[in-house]
């Protein structure tokens, strides 16, 4: 069974979505809220493609026989660039001073798509930094609301330590404590939720610069290569 992605035949297994099959076949589609270990929910919209002529998130579109998917068209790449600019505009992202620089998917997808500025007037939201946990720093300035920590904590750790509250532009990450402090939750350093943040919102303390700038995940090769040929 196959569908086409920008003219290439992509084999798929029943149950796979377009992104899953494309990545397995070595074709990169930019994405942020999608993670192979979790059920896709399609909120960041960066994986948007044209599917049989209509725009749709490829992470939530089930692969099916004969589907025609267009990914690297000028129109679709422009949508993705705008979305990444929206995310930079919405939060407080200062790559040069961020310890996640080089390991950050938002930064890497930005480079991949050729995003050089945020374009829109930054919103400069007032968001808190929570250092109350002995081993983990929570800096919501960088949160892109992908819900991966929410999903990991609920589905794998069984704790629901992270959740979202508010709505619209005031939507924000919360933790499972009446005090609102991460240090008052049951978060453990072994939790899956610590390892899924695509940006620098959830960080382990005292490990930030163990790998120096220059030798980080996306420093030498673009995210499109790293994602589909991780072993290289």
């Amino acid at each position: 069974m196959t569908f086409t992605l920008d003219g290439h035949d992509i084999p798929f297994e029943p149950g796979q979505t377009v992104v899953q099959a494309a990545l397995a076949a070595g074709h990169y589609i930019p994405h942020l809220c999608y993670h192979p270990e979790f059920q896709p929910h399609g909120s960041c919209k960066v994986c948007t493609c044209t599917v049989n002529g209509r725009t749709a998130t490829s992470c939530t579109t089930p692969a099916s026989e004969g589907l025609e998917v267009a990914s690297e068209t000028p129109e679709i790449q422009e949508i993705r660039r705008d979305l990444v600019q929206f995310l930079f505009t919405e939060g407080n992202h200062f790559c040069p001073s961020c310890e996640q620089s080089g390991d950050c998917m938002l930064q890497a997808v930005g480079y991949e798509l050729g995003v050089v500025t945020g374009h829109y007037n930054p919103l400069f939201p007032n968001r808190p930094v929570d250092a109350s946990h002995p081993d983990v720093l929570l800096d919501t300035n960088r949160c892109i609301l992908c819900e991966l920590c929410v999903r990991a904590s609920a589905q794998i750790d069984g704790k629901s330590i992270f959740a979202l509250s508010g709505r619209g532009i005031t939507k924000h990450l919360i933790v499972n404590a009446e005090s609102g402090r991460l240090g008052d939750t049951q978060l453990a350093t072994t939790d899956k939720a610590l390892d899924v943040c695509p940006v620098g919102a959830i960080l382990r303390k005292r490990t930030g610069f163990r790998v120096p700038i220059g030798r980080r995940t996306y420093d030498a090769r673009p995210i499109s290569q790293v994602t589909v040929e991780p072993a290289k």
Binding site: S43, L145, I169, K171
Partner: peptide, 13 residues
Amino acid sequence: SCGFCTPCRVGTT
């Protein structure tokens, strides 16, 4: 806007 997806959450603002 419910804030679920990037385009509507940021775009409406």
